[in-house]
Simulated assay, not measured.
Amino acid sequence: MSVSHSKRVCQIIKLKPEAEEEYIKIHAEVWPGVLAALERAHVVDYSIHYYAPLQLLIANFKYIGADYEGDMKKVAEDPETQRWWKVTDGMQESFNQGAEGSGKEVPWWATLPEVFRFEGKA
């Protein structure tokens, strides 16, 4: 079911080749506190895909709240999420010049513009 007031977000980042196995392994059991922070921030339908030939991680999620920037700031301030990012950031390489890690001023994951959407019939 589509939520008419939702915001779709697609982001990419490069996965370091030596981290592939560990990254996939830890994402099989994401920490409950990290998932709770996303839920509190009105993030739903979150998935990360991996394209191994280019070492690309591609994340997609829907935001169904009313204050995207404010909710993302709350996620970045969450202690459990900060601990998670300390583990995962070291496995990744940002495409954003000047990025220093998740939750910092320059976004760690690059956000992609939407160029096409087909929702079909409700």
Rank of each mutant, 00 (worst) to 15 (best):
residue 6 S to G: 11
residue 110 A to M: 14
residue 27 H to C: 05
residue 50 Y to Q: 00
residue 53 P to K: 03
residue 36 A to E: 15
residue 95 F to T: 00
residue 110 A to Y: 08
residue 2 S to D: 08
residue 51 Y to S: 03
residue 49 H to D: 12
residue 95 F to R: 00
residue 2 S to C: 01
residue 118 F to C: 12
residue 109 W to L: 10
residue 62 K to L: 10
residue 43 V to H: 00
residue 9 V to M: 14
residue 2 S to A: 10
residue 70 G to Y: 13
residue 120 G to I: 10
residue 50 Y to T: 04
residue 58 I to P: 03
residue 92 Q to N: 06
residue 15 L to M: 14
residue 6 S to Q: 14
residue 39 E to S: 13
residue 114 E to R: 12
residue 114 E to C: 11
residue 78 D to A: 04
residue 71 D to R: 10
residue 25 K to H: 13
residue 64 I to K: 03
residue 39 E to G: 09
residue 51 Y to A: 08
residue 26 I to Q: 07
residue 115 V to F: 14
residue 42 H to V: 02
residue 17 P to Q: 14
residue 57 L to G: 04
residue 82 Q to D: 02
residue 114 E to Y: 04
residue 114 E to Q: 14
residue 1 M to K: 06
residue 86 K to Q: 14
residue 56 L to Q: 08
residue 56 L to S: 00
residue 37 A to N: 05
residue 2 S to F: 05
residue 41 A to S: 13
residue 85 W to F: 13
residue 88 T to H: 06
residue 59 A to K: 00
residue 28 A to M: 05
residue 3 V to A: 05
residue 19 A to G: 08
residue 32 P to C: 01
residue 111 T to L: 07
residue 13 I to C: 14
residue 88 T to E: 00
residue 75 V to S: 08
residue 11 Q to I: 07
residue 90 G to W: 04
residue 77 E to N: 13
residue 37 A to F: 02
residue 93 E to F: 03
residue 79 P to R: 07
residue 20 E to H: 10
residue 33 G to H: 05
residue 34 V to G: 03
residue 38 L to E: 00
residue 43 V to C: 12
residue 8 R to D: 11
residue 9 V to T: 12
residue 21 E to G: 06
residue 9 V to H: 08
residue 10 C to W: 07
residue 109 W to N: 02
residue 90 G to Y: 05
residue 52 A to G: 01
residue 110 A to T: 15
residue 6 S to R: 11
residue 91 M to L: 00
residue 71 D to W: 11
residue 111 T to P: 04
residue 99 A to V: 06
residue 35 L to H: 00
residue 53 P to Q: 04
residue 43 V to P: 01
residue 90 G to Q: 09
residue 92 Q to T: 07
residue 103 G to H: 07
residue 99 A to C: 09
residue 60 N to T: 11
residue 62 K to I: 02
residue 117 R to V: 15
residue 98 G to W: 06
residue 85 W to H: 08
residue 10 C to G: 11
residue 17 P to N: 13
residue 18 E to N: 15
residue 53 P to G: 03
residue 75 V to C: 09
residue 32 P to I: 04
residue 20 E to S: 12
residue 54 L to H: 10
residue 68 Y to W: 15
residue 55 Q to F: 06
residue 97 Q to M: 07
residue 109 W to C: 01
residue 21 E to W: 02
residue 48 I to V: 15
residue 33 G to L: 03
residue 23 Y to F: 15
residue 93 E to L: 08
residue 12 I to P: 01
residue 22 E to Q: 15
residue 113 P to I: 09
residue 88 T to V: 14
residue 23 Y to C: 08
residue 19 A to V: 08
residue 117 R to W: 03
residue 70 G to L: 12
residue 119 E to P: 03
residue 17 P to E: 15
residue 116 F to R: 02
residue 23 Y to G: 04
residue 30 V to C: 02
residue 78 D to W: 02
residue 98 G to S: 06
residue 29 E to H: 10
residue 34 V to N: 00
residue 95 F to C: 05
residue 121 K to D: 12
residue 81 T to Y: 07
residue 29 E to W: 02
residue 6 S to N: 02
residue 25 K to V: 01
residue 64 I to E: 09
residue 16 K to A: 13
residue 46 Y to V: 00
residue 102 S to K: 02
residue 4 S to T: 11
residue 72 M to H: 09
residue 40 R to C: 01
residue 94 S to F: 05
residue 79 P to K: 04
residue 71 D to L: 12
residue 106 V to L: 08
residue 90 G to E: 08
residue 118 F to P: 05
residue 43 V to A: 10
residue 98 G to D: 09
